[in-house]
Amino acid sequence: MALDDPSTLVSTEWLAAHMRDPDLRIIDASWYMPAENRDPKAEYDKAHIPGARFFDIDEISDARSALPHMAPSAEKFMSRMRAMGVGDGHQVVVYDAEGVFSAPRVWWLFRLMGQGSVAVLDGGMKKWIAEGRAIEDLPPVIRDRHMMVRFQNQMVKDATQVAAAAKLGTPQIVDARSPARFAGSEPEPREGLRAGRIPGSRNVFFKNLLNDDGTMKEPAALKAAFETAGVDLDKPVITSCGSGITACILSLALERIGKSDHAVYDGSWTEWGSVSSMPIETGDV
């Protein structure tokens, strides 16, 4: 697979070459862990890639859920995208300030809503700025655009479905958290959560899928990372993490290696670790 694939991942060079395309829409999906005390919207207002719209991951979510940034309803997603001037026929490129961190979450949301022409910017804002490319602080010019949503139920799993998978051993559950959190030897960053993992799950730390400059590794290296972790790529996969953000990095990587039968456990460890009746495992695998 070529690096530049407008349905998964594109380079800064690709974006620079397509900046003036009339149907290109750029989205800043920067997001940080609460403990970092950073305001992604304020940072966007100060500097963003020209023409970029800001996607608030915490706001464009299911407000009825007590869990953080759960996937919004199709109706809410459509209305928010229309307000952002993003709709049918647009090629969307999503980036974040870290490189490849929160942008895959928004890539996955677009895919969940049946939108296929969406890619993550490889290396994100960090690489864009390092290369001396243009940034601005101007708000984008918004023109209404209708979006038709076709919700893809198979791309998202709930706790009941994940519990069944853990019991039956299929689909495979792959956890993007750090090895120490996966083993339960390091406390969770969110208060009130047990330490450990979903029984039978595999661990592919999301950082192992990235290069030092924040770009995503080549497909062969991505494939090797999953196989080394004991993931059978011939079987379907459910990705998980702390709260459904970095699980989407795993989903993007799976898509990059040509695997389409994967879904995200949206509640992830924030849900599983808070429910005392859910079984957990600890210790090294």
Rank of each mutant, 00 (worst) to 15 (best):
85 G>Q: 10
93 V>I: 12
85 G>L: 11
99 G>C: 09
133 R>Q: 07
98 E>T: 14
132 G>R: 07
104 P>Q: 11
83 A>C: 04
119 A>H: 03
121 L>I: 10
73 S>M: 00
112 L>T: 07
87 G>E: 07
76 K>T: 13
78 M>N: 15
128 W>G: 10
119 A>C: 09
68 P>A: 00
105 R>H: 03
127 K>S: 15
78 M>P: 06
91 Q>R: 12
84 M>H: 04
82 R>G: 15
95 Y>N: 08
77 F>L: 13
103 A>I: 09
118 V>Q: 04
122 D>I: 03
112 L>V: 10
116 G>R: 15
132 G>N: 01
99 G>D: 07
107 W>C: 06
97 A>T: 13
111 R>N: 11
102 S>F: 00
113 M>H: 03
121 L>H: 00
105 R>I: 01
73 S>W: 02
122 D>A: 03
87 G>F: 02
103 A>R: 08
96 D>E: 05
105 R>D: 01
102 S>C: 09
70 M>W: 00
113 M>W: 04
101 F>S: 13
69 H>R: 08
114 G>D: 13
115 Q>I: 15
118 V>T: 06
81 M>R: 07
112 L>K: 05
118 V>F: 00
88 D>T: 14
69 H>I: 01
116 G>I: 12
133 R>I: 09
120 V>Y: 00
97 A>C: 10
123 G>C: 02
95 Y>K: 12
96 D>A: 06
85 G>Y: 02
125 M>L: 15
87 G>K: 08
92 V>I: 15
116 G>H: 14
84 M>E: 05
70 M>F: 05
126 K>E: 14
112 L>N: 03
89 G>S: 12
76 K>A: 07
129 I>D: 03
132 G>D: 03
94 V>F: 06
96 D>R: 10
89 G>K: 14
94 V>T: 12
82 R>D: 09
70 M>Q: 13
76 K>R: 14
84 M>L: 14
75 E>R: 10
123 G>S: 01
99 G>V: 10
86 V>D: 02
100 V>H: 02
107 W>T: 10
87 G>V: 12
94 V>C: 06
93 V>M: 01
69 H>K: 06
110 F>N: 06
97 A>I: 08
129 I>M: 12
105 R>S: 02
83 A>H: 08
86 V>Y: 01
81 M>E: 04
76 K>M: 08
71 A>V: 12
103 A>C: 08
96 D>C: 04
122 D>M: 02
